[in-house]
Amino acid sequence: MKKQAKWMMMLGLAGALALSACNSGGSNDQQTSDEKSADSFGKQVKYEIIGIDPGAGIMKATSKAIEEYGLSDWKLIEGSGAAMTATLAKDIKNKKPVVITGWTPHWMFSKYDLKYLDDPKKVYGEAEEIHTIARKGLKEDDSTAYTLLDRFEWTSDEMGEIMTAIEEGAKPEDAAKKWADEHVDRVNEWTKDLKPVDGKPLKLSYVAWDSEIASTHLLQYVLQEKLGYKVTALQVEAGPMWTGVANGDVDATAAAWLPLTHADYMAKYKDKVDDLGANMTGVKTGLVVPSYVDISSIEDLKK
């Protein structure tokens, strides 16, 4: 009986040790699994964040995000807005994960099911605004154009109509005309009591973002067809866009993203331009992924 009791005690001790080992191993396995999951996602996308042109403010913010979140294995890929959306379209078609620099308003949010990654450190700031800025002296030189530009404001949904039409193949000028014809009341708000001119030249500049292509072509159409201006729309990089207005070589731009994206340019040129205020509010920038991707925060990119 003593031998049997001793044998049973040994079996119980062995079972307890085995159970303890299993529980301990389970915890470690779970931690390892989480780490492997983050590592696996990074490997799937080659630790690459697909960006746009190197001069864009969102690229500077993303470089800061990589540093702030400790994403030392990750690389920000420079390119263009068109190249970025082409990569996004290809990966979504193949149900592959992808991380891009994104902003709203943009047609890709209406075409694809996307989500912003949470930014607990607020590297990308709060919601931004798109401002219209004009050269010094435009108000005195041309009160009609200045007043129209000062009045111009619209919503992201309204802009989205033009952006979507362009993305589906319409020429920017045709999409702008169609929108103006379908929103006569809005156009009348901007042009009310303004006296048309006879072919007076006016220069606008803009960056090659889908949102700015939409807004600038709409302004060009309204200024030309409703107020008689001869408008030149110059597509340039962000630096020349701001410099042109500050130097007086360009009359205005409706493509200034503030307070974050174009913060450096505003700090440099704030005394040399007139800020007419926001023509759109509630815009946003950040890192964007397809909704089927199983991560929700920039912190999830870290191994």
Rank of each mutant, 00 (worst) to 15 (best):
F152T: 03
L149N: 09
T155W: 05
M108S: 11
W154Q: 04
A127K: 15
F152R: 05
K200Y: 08
L149Q: 05
R186M: 01
L117A: 06
D141M: 08
T164Q: 14
E168C: 05
D119Q: 08
D91I: 03
D113C: 04
K139P: 11
E173W: 11
D141P: 13
A134R: 01
K192S: 08
V98G: 01
K200T: 12
P172Q: 10
D119H: 11
S110F: 08
F152Q: 00
A134C: 14
L149C: 08
D181H: 13
R186K: 14
K139Y: 12
L88H: 11
W179T: 01
D150M: 13
T164H: 11
K90N: 06
K136C: 05
K121T: 04
V98L: 02
D91E: 12
T101S: 08
N188Q: 14
P105N: 03
H131Q: 08
T191H: 07
R186I: 03
T164E: 10
T85V: 15
E158K: 13
T87F: 07
G169C: 09
K136E: 08
F152E: 03
K171F: 14
K121V: 02
L149T: 07
H131N: 12
A170Y: 14
K122S: 13
I100Y: 02
V184F: 01
M163Q: 15
S143R: 12
D141R: 15
P201W: 10
K93I: 00
L148W: 11
D119M: 06
P97R: 04
K178C: 03
G169R: 12
E126Q: 14
M84S: 10
T155Q: 01
V187C: 05
Y124R: 07
F152H: 03
E153F: 06
L202T: 07
K111H: 14
K195R: 07
A170F: 12
F109D: 07
V187K: 06
Y146K: 06
D198Y: 11
L114R: 10
Y116V: 01
D91R: 14
A176Y: 09
E167N: 14
V98H: 04
A180V: 10
A86I: 06
E173F: 14
T191Q: 04
S143F: 13
F152S: 03
K171M: 11
K122D: 11
I162K: 09
M108P: 08
H131V: 10
G169F: 07
T132Y: 10
S110I: 05
H131I: 05
K177Y: 07
I130L: 04
P196N: 05
P201L: 06
A175I: 09
L117H: 12
G125S: 09
E182F: 00
D185N: 05
A86M: 04
K192G: 00
T164L: 06
Y124L: 09
W107Y: 15
V99P: 06
T101Y: 04
H183S: 02
T147K: 11
H131P: 01
H106S: 08
K177P: 12
Y112N: 04
E140V: 15
L117T: 04
I166K: 06
P105Y: 01
V187Q: 00
K178A: 12
Y124E: 05
A165L: 07
P201H: 06
E126Y: 13
E182D: 15
G102W: 05
K200V: 02
K136P: 03
P196V: 00
D157Q: 12
K96L: 06
Y146D: 02
V184S: 05
L194H: 07
D193F: 02
L202M: 09
